[in-house]
């Protein structure tokens, strides 16, 4: 089983070193990803999902740093590698897609040149061979007339087309894992669907594992195999997408699912979870969600719930580990 894992994240913690001491932003995040699997990483802004994504590709910006845990790519530990070795992995074995395709490409360089540059950084190809591969990539991500588009600049493409080019750049060296951080948030809905089905196809045809960071449940429903829900720097629940969407176990996930507006049940007021997510550094003792949780008991304010494997998922909530009422263990 371990051999088939594309990505294995164990107890990853991220802290920010500030003048007032270090502040934990992501705590003991663990998940795995099989080849060709799409994992949705969801949560509100500030839950730490983008930070986790950046940490995976080794681009955590100072003053943030990985304070603990391990990241394994195809069984090899990558988070402790020297910067130059990490640089060589980026783009070659672990790719990235960012939110805004309008600003992800260098405006002064043709898309062809950017593709060739990326290809030749990672693969020992001659210039003509790299050019041919660039054309193939453009065709693969659904750009019509690759030969004609090859020499054009980013501003000559629409937003959706640019995101396709960004994807072509991300898969230029056939990485095993792609971290896609809100890849469709900046696009309009019809284009969103096209980009998502393109990602889906890449995962299926090339066996690329995709970590999809998003706050959009609709995107998750459309493309993810499994979902990991983050709240205040921790993963509170992981499970297959249908289960999480329809039978969430963690009260936060259940609340989150209740928020999705639907046509069939119109309410005068949109539902909401009372209160707001605490910012890093202001997390309450015990379960971070307990001040907002409808089922919280005394134990929740004292103990951090341990992650509990259940069926083919995980949940971190006292409801499933002996109840919320029992007093803290002596």
């Amino acid at each position: 089983m371990t051999a088939a894992l594309a990505l294995d994240v164990r107890d990853l913690s991220i802290v920010f070193d500030t003048r007032r001491g270090s502040m934990t932003a992501v705590q003991e995040v663990s998940f795995t990803l099989a080849r060709g699997e799409v994992l949705g990483l969801v949560g509100e802004s500030g839950a730490g999902k983008s930070l986790t994504g950046n940490a995976l590709i080794g681009l955590l910006q100072a003053p943030g740093r990985i304070a603990g845990g391990e990241v394994h790519l195809d069984g090899q530990r990558i988070d402790a590698l020297p910067p130059e070795a990490q640089r060589r992995l980026r783009g070659k074995r672990i790719g990235a897609i960012f939110q805004d395709p309008l600003t992800s490409l260098d405006p002064l360089m043709t898309v062809g040149a950017q593709l060739v540059e990326t290809i030749r950084t990672h693969l020992p190809l001659s210039a003509p061979a790299a050019r041919a591969r660039a054309m193939d990539l453009l065709a693969e991500v659904g750009i019509a007339d690759p030969a004609g588009r090859y020499g054009q600049y980013p501003h000559q493409f629409s937003g959706g087309m640019r995101q396709r080019i960004v994807i072509a750049l991300a898969i230029a060296a056939e990485p095993d894992v792609i971290v896609a951080d809100e890849p469709t948030t900046a696009l309009d809905v019809s284009v969103q669907a096209q980009i998502l089905s393109l990602l889906r196809r890449l995962a299926r045809d090339h066996g690329t594992a995709i970590v999809l960071v998003t706050h959009d449940m609709g995107v998750i429903a459309e493309i993810a195999d499994r979902v990991a829900v983050m709240y205040a720097g921790r993963i509170v629940e992981i499970g297959p997408v249908t289960e999480v969407l329809h039978a969430a176990r963690h009260p936060y996930t259940a609340g989150l699912m209740g928020l999705i507006p639907s046509l069939s049940r119109r309410a005068d007021r949109l539902p909401q979870i009372a209160g707001s997510m605490p910012r890093p550094g202001q997390w309450p003792v015990g379960c971070s969600f307990h001040p907002r949780c409808p089922s919280a008991g005394p134990r929740c304010a004292a103990d951090v719930p341990r992650p509990l494997s259940a069926d083919d998922g995980m949940v971190a909530c006292h409801l499933f580990s002996g109840g919320t009422l029992s007093p803290p263990a002596p």
Partner: peptide, 17 residues
């Protein structure tokens, strides 16, 4: 600080480039 620089890094380009 621009996104395309971050993306260039994510593509694994050398610092020099």
């Amino acid at each position: 600080r621009a996104d395309f620089i971050k993306f260039a890094r994510a593509r694994g380009l050398t610092d020099r480039s």
